[in-house]
């Protein structure tokens, strides 16, 4: 062994040294480092998990948003249709009311015209009657002599005596 240049004592010392180094390395370097790596890996896994959860939530939220938008649109259409129907109905009611009022006004106007015509007719008739009677009375005053009056009186009495 000495001819090969290998010193047993040195070799044993190196082996012991190596073993000590190994144990020291393992205890104070490898383990912490491995623990560190484990922790990092765990952190990464957690992060991935969280990220995955967030993505899932995000997807769900997008779905919910789309669902909400869809419902909102349906509600809007529903409200719009109802509003259209209500406005159509209101329009019909207003038109009917306007027509009824117009018909009523026309009827009243016709009645008023008839009433006015009736009043006018009565007034004209009264005027003509009064004027005619007045003219007759005036003519009688001017033209009835005592002789005529006597004849008329006699005529009245004679007619009444006949039975």
């Amino acid at each position: 062994m000495e001819n090969l240049g290998i010193d047993i004592k040195l070799l044993i010392a190196q082996v012991i040294n190596f073993i000590i180094l190994f144990f020291v390395f393992r205890r104070y370097l490898a383990k912490p480092f491995i623990n560190y790596l484990k922790e990092e890996r765990k952190k990464d896994e957690d992060k991935s998990k969280i990220l995955s959860e967030l993505e899932t939530k995000h997807d769900r939220m997008i779905e919910e948003e789309q669902e909400f938008r869809k419902k909102l649109k349906q509600e809007q259409e529903k409200i719009l249709n109802e509003t259209k129907r209500a406005s159509e109905k209101l329009k019909e009611e207003l038109m009917k009311k306007a027509k009824d009022e117009a018909d009523d006004i026309i009827s009243k106007a016709k009645r008023q015209i008839e009433d006015d015509r009736e009043v006018f007719y009565k007034e004209v008739k009264s005027y003509i009657t009064d004027t005619s009677i007045f003219m007759i009375e005036k003519a009688l005053k001017q033209n009835l002599t005592t002789e005529v009056q006597k004849k008329l009186t006699e005529h009245v009495l004679s007619n009444l005596q006949k039975k």
Binding site: K125, S126, T129, D130, I133, I136, E137, L140, K141, L144, V148, Q149, L152, T153, V156, L157, L160
Partner: peptide, 30 residues
């Protein structure tokens, strides 16, 4: 009175005048 006569007895009266005939005519027209 245009012609004819009116006979009054107390509160009663008969009008046989032309005046009343004209008034009746007016009334009938109205």
């Amino acid at each position: 009175i245009y012609s004819g006569l009116i006979i009054k007895i107390g509160t009663k009266m008969i009008d046989l005048t032309l005046n009343s005939a004209l008034q009746n005519l007016r009334k009938k027209i109205y």
